[in-house]
């Protein structure tokens, strides 16, 4: 066991043993065409953490999330969510995919998209009820998009589209959230709105995992961090694992700009 993993081991041991962890990954490997994308991942995330998943392009961040959600086949290893398989826990899991993963010309309004968050609990043949519509509207209000509820989604700005996705995650009413780059190409107002929302989710005891690219904001936004580059380089409280040394090991020598930004952050603390 590498020394970087120590902090979370301690948390695991001191945490209440009766309650199972929101996310526990053991020996997870995923390969495409026999080429591993993520390799032998071991991770435990304690309850109520705001977690950033950080690493260079191609580090396997999205793959890690998709493997947790059973969206891609695992080559080996297990993932347990609150002590059970994803299949049994899916109603407690919320997912925000990458914004580019869908066709924004699709004939639906922002409200329609948000209401999709309720589909999972509806079951076959059931229609969206008035109550879920009201819930969806409420979620849109919370992300500041109430006035845009009936707009076709291509007429929203990138930031508004991202907030629509977050509102959809809110109505999923999950206990653990997986978000794939919710901060990608959003305006400053949206970034603030998302951060506020994440903190609010955390206050309500939710666990949130976020794939994040902007190293400079990691210590400010997230209290727990996973540094990933095919393998887990380090995981634990951000102020312990987000060090110059770990970042260098995650990004290698190739990303000097990132390293410089990270240096600044580390120095400023």
């Amino acid at each position: 066991m590498s020394p970087e993993s120590d902090p979370f081991i301690q948390v695991e041991q001191t945490g209440s043993s009766s309650k199972s962890l929101p996310l526990k990954i053991r020996d997870l490997t995923v390969a495409y065409h026999r080429k591993p994308v993520i390799w032998d991942i071991d991770l435990s995330i304690p309850e109520g953490k705001l977690v950033s998943i950080v690493g260079p392009n191609g580090a396997g961040k999205s793959t890690l999330i998709k493997a947790c959600l059973d969206l891609i086949p695992r080559t080996s290893g297990e993932v347990s969510i609150y002590g059970q398989s994803y299949k049994k826990r899916r109603k407690r899991v919320g997912y925000v995919p990458q914004r580019e993963s869908v066709d924004w010309d699709f004939p639906v309004s922002a409200l329609d998209v948000v209401a999709m968050g309720t589909y999972g609990k509806l079951g076959w043949f059931r229609r969206v009820s008035k109550r879920s519509k009201a819930l969806s509207m409420e979620a849109l209000e919370r992300v500041g998009l109430a006035d845009y509820a009936h707009r076709q989604i291509s007429q929203l700005s990138g930031g508004q589209q991202q907030r629509t996705f977050l509102a959809r995650a809110l109505v999923q009413d999950a206990d653990i959230y997986f978000m794939d780059e919710p901060f990608a190409a959003v305006d400053a107002a949206t970034e603030r709105a998302i951060v506020e929302l994440l903190k609010e989710l955390q206050k309500r005891g939710k666990t949130v995992l976020v794939v994040h690219h902007d190293l400079a904001t990691v210590p400010q936004y997230f209290d727990w961090t996973v540094l990933l580059n095919m393998r887990v380089v380090a995981v634990g409280p951000t102020n312990e694992v987000f060090t110059q040394e770990n970042l260098r090991r995650t990004y290698g020598g190739k990303l000097t700009l990132f390293t410089q930004a990270a240096n600044k952050v580390v120095q400023s603390r």
Binding site: F106, M116, R168
Partner: peptide, 22 residues
């Protein structure tokens, strides 16, 4: 008509649909 909801979500966002168990 019967699968309108399922068709809508799986056409728009197949990954979320699958993650939700649809």
């Amino acid at each position: 008509v019967a699968f309108f909801k399922e068709l809508r979500i799986s056409s728009f966002d197949a990954e979320l649909a699958t993650a939700m168990g649809i």
